[in-house]
Amino acid sequence: MTRPAVLVVGEALTDVVAGPDGQRRAHPGGSPANVALGLARLGHPVELATRIGRDRYGQVLRDHLTGAGVRLTPGSIVDAPTSTATAELDGQGSASYRFDISWDLPDLALPPCHHLHTGSIATALEPGATRVERLLAEARPGRTISYDPNLRPALLGPPAGERPRVERLVAAADLVKASEEDLAWLHPDADPDAVAARWARSGPALVVLTRGAGGACAYWGAAGRQPLPAQPVTVADTIGAGDAFMAGLLAGLLTADLLGGGGAALREAAGGGTLHPGVAAALRLAGRAAAVACSRAGADLPTLAEVGG
């Protein structure tokens, strides 16, 4: 059986969506779990190290993930309630969140894989966050690492207290994806564009800043910068859009053989003055995946056929 190309580490939870009409709907979610789901639907073997309860929400989550082809690492199913995030939607489909979540990482022997992805609550909430950082250190050398801060201010302290942790993880990663909202919260007195460009000089081979309807922008090296237009779409809601973008970006880079090997291929691809064709194709795939996710309710990430693969 093919071993997973990617290990995703992080939370799986249930999004309870409260719409403007007052109705409440439950959807499987959690940023890392969404990325794992998206990679599987885009045709890439993936394993997820997470924490899911043995309750009704947990059963739905397990069926949702494994039905798409995601493998769960041993220890990911626990005798505890499944975490939830209640998303309040405004009239434009944008969400704000309230959380009931516990996070810890199961005992894990690092499985064979080319790439490790993590981010969001898994890298911020103890006791699991410290264990995730140790796993990232263990993943070096030989693998590439991606990180999506996907910050949840309701679970965090003040921005000044969070910056050292986030920027330590940024410097340890080969690939970083962050939203404009992430950087505006983390650095309220700085231009997100300038922060992303600085991050690209601090360690990662590639940094991508997403701007919602404003598209995205890729940064690499000392001065590499390439804006990317958004795909036109009628928005149902934005839940999972950033995770769909991340999954599409990883899928495209895997297809271009730019992940793994300690990052040598990705760093060579991001070493020139123009955007490498494989990176450009991955960013286009990411944009299409995010557009499909925005067009339907909840974190319903697209298949390869739906993004034109």
Score class of each variant (00 low, 15 high):
101 I>E: 01
77 I>A: 15
85 A>R: 06
106 P>D: 06
103 W>K: 03
96 S>W: 06
121 I>D: 01
112 P>K: 06
116 L>P: 02
74 P>T: 09
90 D>T: 08
111 P>T: 08
107 D>Q: 13
76 S>L: 09
85 A>K: 09
69 G>W: 04
96 S>K: 13
98 R>I: 01
78 V>G: 07
100 D>I: 05
120 S>Q: 11
75 G>F: 12
121 I>K: 02
101 I>G: 00
69 G>S: 13
101 I>F: 00
107 D>I: 05
116 L>N: 01
113 C>Q: 05
85 A>F: 14
92 Q>Y: 05
105 L>S: 00
78 V>S: 02
109 A>V: 14
111 P>Q: 13
120 S>D: 08
123 T>V: 11
118 T>K: 00
107 D>E: 15
113 C>P: 06
110 L>R: 10
108 L>S: 05
119 G>H: 11
84 T>D: 06
100 D>H: 14
82 T>A: 04
79 D>C: 08
72 L>N: 00
99 F>M: 00
84 T>H: 10
74 P>Q: 01
70 V>G: 00
78 V>H: 07
86 T>G: 03
88 E>I: 03
92 Q>E: 11
105 L>H: 03
123 T>I: 06
91 G>Y: 04
92 Q>L: 14
86 T>F: 06
95 A>P: 12
114 H>K: 11
113 C>N: 13
108 L>Y: 14
79 D>Q: 10
106 P>N: 04
115 H>S: 04
109 A>R: 15
122 A>W: 11
95 A>T: 12
88 E>P: 03
74 P>G: 04
88 E>C: 01
98 R>T: 13
116 L>E: 02
68 A>F: 07
97 Y>N: 07
79 D>I: 01
123 T>H: 08
85 A>P: 06
82 T>L: 14
106 P>F: 12
121 I>Y: 03
86 T>K: 02
81 P>T: 04
90 D>Y: 08
68 A>I: 09
94 S>P: 00
106 P>W: 07
69 G>D: 12
105 L>I: 11
79 D>F: 05
83 S>L: 03
109 A>I: 12
83 S>A: 15
73 T>R: 14
72 L>D: 00
92 Q>P: 03
96 S>F: 04
78 V>T: 15
102 S>F: 02
100 D>R: 13
77 I>D: 15
69 G>L: 09
78 V>Y: 08
83 S>G: 15
117 H>Y: 09
95 A>R: 10
116 L>F: 02
88 E>G: 12
80 A>K: 06
84 T>F: 04
77 I>T: 15
110 L>I: 08
90 D>N: 14
94 S>A: 13
102 S>G: 14
88 E>Y: 06
99 F>L: 03
94 S>G: 14
99 F>P: 02
80 A>T: 06
116 L>H: 00
89 L>Y: 08
96 S>E: 11
98 R>W: 01
90 D>V: 08
91 G>K: 05
